[in-house]
């Protein structure tokens, strides 16, 4: 068993290791995403300051709490990034899926380890954003190790749940063979419903109920609530269990969905 796990770790570790190399192949990507991220952070801070100009609290949150949440959401925005729809679309259009299916590895597992590696790279690339949030907008970082622990476990579970959810959506591309519309729609939904633009507490009850009934918020809003002090650390075990249920449910459905969808693969031409 240990030998088997070691072999698997070696294979998938090698697959994950290509991700940073591919990121580093295009230095311009780093600078563009940094500039765009900084502009977005600035806009959101000014927007929420303007909103709080009329009121002291919103959804029970003060301006300081909301800004802490928003700045943390910007720094950890990579938790809500998933490229699966674009990747599936590209590999279907270019016929690369033929080669990917011909590797003796778990198809979903190889994408998952690459997604995790991509998350790591993106979080490192966000370090300048963390410095900007601290220096320019006064972000106060939480000091409670328990809050960080609750955040990290919750982030890993939530990111995994979102990965499986996007896997199901990406499998639709086997049927549609068109990804632009689906990709843009899912990107927009993820940005909004993940809680990257506003804390869930500020949303009207009906909207918050809807957001919690779908998986987008699991990867960003739920973990960030621990870090920004909105959810007490004592609630961590219950939250983790809920997220684990999302992971198991979506994991099973995504595998079944893919097994059916892959039979629709069409790779035209030589």
């Amino acid at each position: 068993m240990i030998t088997y796990l070691r072999r698997q770790a070696s294979i998938y570790g090698a697959i994950a290791a290509i991700v940073p190399k591919r990121f580093l192949a295009f230095e311009i990507w780093f600078w563009v995403s940094l500039i765009l991220g900084a502009i977005e952070m600035m806009i959101l801070v000014f927007f929420w300051r303007a909103v709080y100009g009329q009121t002291a609290t919103l959804g029970g949150l003060s301006l300081d709490q909301t800004l802490t949440y928003i700045l943390l959401a910007q720094v950890f925005s990579a938790l809500a990034d998933q490229d699966l729809i674009w990747e599936f679309g590209f590999s279907l259009r270019e016929g690369l899926i033929a080669h990917m299916l011909l590797r003796p590895v778990g198809y979903q597992t190889s994408y998952y380890v690459q997604a995790l590696a991509g998350l790591g790279v993106r979080l490192i690339m966000q370090l300048p954003m963390a410095l900007l949030a601290t220096a320019a907008f006064g972000l106060r970082w939480p000091t409670d190790p328990a809050a960080w622990g609750a955040f990290l476990v919750s982030a890993l579970l939530g990111y995994t749940a979102l990965f499986f959810f996007h896997w199901i959506l990406a499998s639709l591309t086997f049927y549609t063979t068109e990804v632009w519309g689906l990709g843009v729609l899912v990107y927009g939904l993820t940005r909004f419903f993940s809680g990257g633009l506003m804390p869930l507490a500020i949303m009207p009850v009906w909207l918050r109920t809807l957001v919690l009934a779908i998986p987008f918020a699991q990867s960003l809003a739920i973990p960030l609530n621990f870090l920004s002090g909105i959810t007490p650390v004592a609630e961590a075990p219950a939250t983790w269990l809920g997220q684990l249920a999302w992971v198991i449910g979506l994991g099973v459905v995504s595998q079944l969905f893919f097994r059916v969808a892959v039979r629709k693969v069409t790779v035209q031409g030589g």
Binding site: R7, S10, I11, A14, I15, A17, I18, K21, R22, A25, F26, E94, G95, L96, A98, H99, L102, R103, P104, V105, G269, G270
Partner: peptide, 29 residues
């Protein structure tokens, strides 16, 4: 099995050949 699709590459576009081959070696153990 091994496959060459003459019009599609199985290697990683951005990586050096040696890196692609070494990854394939890991995958196939």
């Amino acid at each position: 099995v091994g496959v060459v699709f003459g019009q599609r590459s199985q290697m990683w576009w951005d990586l050096a050949l040696t890196e692609s081959l070494s990854l394939i070696a890991k995958i196939y153990e």
